[in-house]
Write a protein that binds this DNA or RNA. Structure first.
Length: 564
DNA sequence: CGCATATGCGCG
DNA sequence: AAAGCGCGCATATGCG
């Protein structure tokens, strides 16, 4: 593989307080070559110059803490090494004999509540200690270099790129049409009532529910009261959740389930959400790369990763711009097939629908069964429809099943499992281990034994899923990074500028959700951007699995609205 | 009153 | 308490 324009140049870049920065050029041995002190006002031009002439990797404490201010000032970083994100990986990885020493100093600090603005929350008022950064970076380089599999450099680079991308996506924002959102709400709930009162459709359903329950005063949002009222009319459910209610035949069920749907939309993504989270036509969630132990991203505020599909029509490109919407169907089982080197499963994964391939293999009769069987295999189902189907997969895909079964057994025994690139599961805590060894003693309390076995199996299901979910997260990270890389070489918009933000004339990533991306691109670049997304997916697959023949097909659309 | 926990449901 | 993974958020309720 050609190294493109990437260079070996490295600069440590630190915010030292008072809006000032220090940059240190590092030689290949990690030693200081030159130190430059920068006033905030010099930063933009200086970084831009170094980017153009040297194309370095910027060693930073954390993109989350540093990058928003830089983006606001128009500074883009092409490559980084994010010390906080990489610390978490290199502390836990089982790929080296001596991983990074854990340290509280290198954990992301939660922004304190009560501070005025996110900007200030993320800023470190006192600045970084340059010596501490340098020392930590050298330690991280030591761990990375000790990895015999040679995969940790890619993982750290991808994770760091994710750190930059998360901030760029927040800065760029997801184009969101508040009027379209409002129309959906009015359509589904009824017109907005003053003072946050229930809209008409909701109120009507609530009335029907109260009528059928014979209690005109009933407060439907209280599970306890609702459950009692249901029992009074002979609906003997154990909870008020919809999966249980939907099995019951009673006139109250239909309006109750409908009410719950509407109530959820109103409270989670109603007008209050709209006015809090959408400004100037953009939804700007806070993404937390590496926020999940498996390496998946989490989010904070705005429920970015839980936007209901019914609101997708509110995602609308600016005038003269388009959206490129792409997702992978069945990413996780594809990762499993490739990781395990399971040719039979890879064969089933050929083409767009892996589940159809599983049916064609003869393992199960219907697509629905294939889906439950495959999900059950990755999640560790043991009972029910799903659990009943899993053994059939063991016959047809022994290699893939052995991989997840081994991961589960390792987890049950208190061991550590790892993803394709070397992100490792956390060790069980001391209490867990104590409970396990206690339960294995001759005079163990049967109740404790049972509890210990159950928690061992829970951990087994976690590690079983960890290897698959975590490797899928790595594929997605590389996909993102490669998309971003390719978007940079697209021409600037000539016809229409986007509404706002640092990407007013540039195609940018606007949304990411585990196995799906939305790009916001000038209309004239839409085809090129779509091609970039496809190429990036192919590169991600090759980086992870080399020449192993695994299909990772994209559903990709160039659209004005993200409606589906 | 604030804070922690439980419930339920949205997303993958 | 979904038979089976990973999350975040709103709301109700219990505790101090």
């Amino acid at each position: 593989m050609k190294a493109a324009s990437a260079s070996d140049a490295r600069f440590l870049l630190a915010s030292v307080g008072g809006g000032d920065y220090v940059a240190i050029e590092l030689d290949p041995g990690g030693e200081e070559r030159e130190r430059v002190e920068l006033a905030g006002s010099d930063l933009v031009d200086w970084v831009r110059g170094v980017e153009q002439s040297r194309s370095p990797r910027w060693v930073i404490r954390s993109a989350r803490e540093l990058y928003p201010r830089m983006l606001a000032a128009g500074v883009f970083l092409t490559r980084s090494h994010d010390l906080l994100l990489c610390h978490a990986i290199l502390r836990d990885t089982d790929r080296v004999a001596r991983p990074l020493a854990p340290s509280e100093d290198w954990l992301p600090r939660e922004p304190d509540a009560g501070e005025p603005a996110l900007f200030d929350l993320l800023a470190r008022p006192s600045g970084d200690s340059v010596d501490d950064l340098l020392e930590q970076y050298r330690e991280q380089c030591r761990v990375i270099a000790a990895d015999k599999t040679g995969r940790l450099p890619l993982l750290c680079a991808a994770e760091s790129a994710g750190g930059l991308i998360a901030e760029e996506m927040r800065a760029g924002g997801l184009p969101w049409d508040g009027e379209a959102h409002d129309r959906i709400l009015v359509d589904v709930l009824g017109p907005r009532q003053p003072g946050g009162e229930q809209p008409a459709r909701m109120a009507e359903l609530a009335e029907k529910v109260r009528f059928h329950l014979g209690d005109p005063q009933l407060h439907l949002d209280s599970h306890v009261k609702l459950l009692r009222a249901l029992h009074r009319v002979g609906v003997n459910v154990e909870s008020t959740s919809q999966w249980e209610l939907s099995d019951v035949t009673h006139p109250v069920i239909e309006p109750l389930l409908a009410y719950k749907k509407l109530s959820r939309l109103m409270s989670a993504n109603g007008w209050a959400w709209l006015s809090e989270w959408v400004h100037a036509g953009r939804f700007r969630p806070v993404y937390i790369p590496g926020g999940v132990v498996t390496g998946r991203w989490a989010s904070s505020g705005g429920g970015a990763l839980q936007i209901p599909r019914i609101l997708r029509p509110a995602v609308q490109a600016d005038e003269g711009w388009m959206l490129v919407v792409a997702d992978v169907a069945q990413l996780e089982p594809r990762m499993l097939a490739a990781m395990a080197g399971d040719k039979a499963m890879a064969e089933a994964a050929r083409g767009r629908d892996l589940y159809a391939g599983v049916v064609a293999s003869g393992a199960v009769a219907t697509r629905e069964e294939a889906k439950y069987a495959v999900l059950g295999a990755m999640y560790g189902a043991t009972t029910g429809d799903s659990g009943r189907l899993v053994p059939r997969l063991r016959k047809v895909y022994p290699r893939a099943m052995r991989l997840v079964d081994d991961a589960a057994r390792t987890g049950e025994d208190g061991g550590v499992v790892s993803t394709n690139l070397g992100r490792s599961s956390p060790r069980p805590d001391a209490a867990w281990q104590a409970a396990q060894s206690e339960a294995s003693g001759a005079d163990a309390d049967p109740v404790e034994v049972k509890r210990a076995r159950q928690s061992a199996r829970e951990r087994g299901r976690f590690t079983r899923n960890f290897v698959v979910q975590g490797t899928a997260a790595e594929w997605a990270l590389i996909w993102l990074a490669e998309i971003r890389h390719r978007l940079r070489s697209l021409p600037e918009a000539t016809t229409a500028a986007a509404a706002s933000g640092p990407f007013a004339r540039n195609a940018h990533l606007a949304f990411f959700l585990h196995d799906e991306v939305i790009l916001h691109v000038p209309a004239e670049s839409a085809d090129a951007a779509a091609e970039a997304v496809r190429q990036a997916a192919a590169v991600a697959t090759r980086r992870l699995f080399g020449e192993f023949p695994i299909d990772v097909p994209l559903d990709l659309q160039i659209v004005q609205t993200a409606e589906k």
